[in-house]
Nucleic acid binder design. Structure first.
Lengths: 125, 125
DNA sequence: GTAGCTGCAAACCTTTTGCGCGAAC
DNA sequence: GTTCGCGCAAAAGGTTTGCAGCTAC
C-alpha cells in the first residue's frame, strides 16, 4: 500500500462525516467545509472519501448518490422515499444472517439492511 | 395516471430483464437488445425501465448504477465485491423486520437486504 | 529533495430531457 | 386524427482523472 501523509483537508473531511448525522454525500461534505476551507476542491473531497472508504476508515452506503458513514459498527439504515434522507435504524446488525446466506459457493463478508419508508417530517405533510 | 399504449420496445425490454439472470442495468439491456432492435435508443430503455419500475412491474435495485429485477416477490440479493455481479439470495424476505423497524415515527414500507461477498467464480481465482 | 496531496479543469459515465416524426388506437 | 412512444441528440448530474504547483517528511 502507498505511504500516506497527513493532510489537513483529509482530517476535516473525516470530521465532517463523523460529526454530521445525515450520512453526507460528497457534495454535502463540500458544502459543510466550504466556509472553513474556501479553496477546498470537490475533487479532493471525492478522492479522500473514496480513499478512506477503501481503507475501511469510512463506510460507503449504496444509493443513486454515494453517502458516507463514520460509524463502522454495522447497523441498519432508514431511507425516506420522499425526501431521501438517511437515518440510523434501531435494529442491531444480525451476523447470523451472514452465516445463513453462505450458500451456493459464495463467501459472505457482510450485508446491508436498509429500510424504505416515510420519515416523521414527511409524514406530517 | 396516463393512458398507456402497447409498444414493441417496452415488451422486449421487459423480457430482457425477465430472461436475464444478472439483474441487468439499463446499458446491459440495451446491449442485449441491440442485435435484435438495431434502432433502439438508450433513452428509450431508460424511459421504459423507469416507467415499469414506477408501475411496480419491475423492481429497481440500489447501487452505484441502477439494476432491475423482474422477480417481484421480495427476496435477498448477493453482490460480488470483486466482479460486481448480483445474484439472488437463498434467504426469504422477513416481513417481521419491517414491523420491528417501525419506530421513531417512521412508516416502513419495505426493506432491502443485500449481502456482500465473493462469488464462486471470483473465489476460484 | 522526493513523494504525496491539493486545486483546477476537463473528461467520463449514467441518467434525464426536449423535439420532431412515426405508431397505436 | 389525436395521443403517446420512439429515436436522436443535447443537457444534466455525479464522479473520476491529468496536471502543475505546493506540502509533509
Amino acid at each position: 500500500m502507498k505511504e500516506q501523509r497527513y493532510s489537513r483537508q483529509r482530517e476535516r473531511i473525516y470530521q465532517a462525516v463523523r460529526d454530521s448525522r445525515e450520512h453526507p454525500t460528497a457534495q454535502m461534505v463540500y458544502d459543510i467545509l466550504r466556509p472553513e476551507l474556501p479553496k477546498l476542491s470537490l475533487g479532493t473531497v471525492y478522492r479522500n472519501l473514496q480513499q478512506m472508504a477503501a481503507e475501511g476508515r469510512l463506510a460507503q452506503l449504496d444509493g443513486p448518490v454515494a453517502r458516507f458513514d463514520a460509524v463502522l459498527v454495522p447497523h441498519t439504515h432508514l431511507c425516506c422515499a420522499n425526501c431521501g434522507q438517511v437515518a440510523d435504524g434501531g435494529l442491531p446488525y444480525d451476523a447470523a444472517l451472514d452465516r445463513a446466506a453462505m450458500a451456493g459457493g459464495w463467501t459472505i463478508t457482510g450485508h446491508s439492511l436498509t429500510f424504505t419508508g416515510i420519515c416523521p417530517a414527511c409524514a406530517g405533510k
